[in-house]
Design a protein around this nucleic acid. Sequence first.
DNA 1: TTTTGTACTTTCCATTTGGAAAGCCGACAA
DNA 2: TTGTCGGCTTTCCAAATGGAAAGTACAAAA
Lengths: 120, 120
Amino acid sequence: MAIKRRKSNVPPPPKECSVTMCMQLLGGAWTPNIIWYLRAEPRRFSELMADIPGVSPKVFTARLKRLEQSGILIRRVMPTSPPTVEYSLTDLGQELTPAIEAIVQVGHKLKRRVAVSMGQ
Amino acid sequence: MAIKRRKSNVPPPPKECSVTMCMQLLGGAWTPNIIWYLRAEPRRFSELMADIPGVSPKVFTARLKRLEQSGILIRRVMPTSPPTVEYSLTDLGQELTPAIEAIVQVGHKLKRRVAVSMGQ
DNA sequence: TTTTGTACTTTCCATTTGGAAAGCCGACAA
DNA sequence: TTGTCGGCTTTCCAAATGGAAAGTACAAAA
């Protein structure tokens, strides 16, 4: 029996994939965490790194650099001694916070699922 | 000059990182695309794979399996011949669609940024 | 009996990722 | 002159990732 292939009536299949483009930013280790900790206020390099235990300076600076180049965050060198560097989200970066909030929501439920399935 | 380390007054630092937990699901190649194409209606294996050009069957089934085991989607074998398999989002999976919509939004703007910077 | 269709699975391999550890730089304090 | 601080950078390496290509299983149609 032949099966008819249903045509998709899903809205617009994103042209040249916006999803993929944005996920190449968010995808690497620690990236969403950085945005999460910057969502309320600017934060310094060492503060942010302490917020996110486990990240190495190499990966951490790589992420910050990529996010800056993509216009998600801004890097400001403060005229202190020794110089300190402050990172903050741009408007574009702020648009990602609802995404990360939804991700956190689902993360919570995933944890409950695991907890429940381990409880029996 | 010593610099005072500002204490974070960001809300709750997610305990045992919900962000990271959920990103291990969403992180792999093609994962958000699968959710995107399932958000409106159930869809068959080969349909979904055609929706997402470039994905290999190996990676594709690996993603579907992981998403099923995490309770993001449901796999139903239909009593046809040859058997067909239909995938659909669970309620938990539906909670991810706002996240992916926000990601798409930012993806659009990233593309415009690139387009503009190439135009001059 | 051979072919077709659907949904995978397996093997192999190059590339990418990211962790650990150590080093670097300029300014200032001791 | 040596040490300290903040913010990185570099090197090395093991593990994870994902693509290509081929194979599998089962039922039905030809």
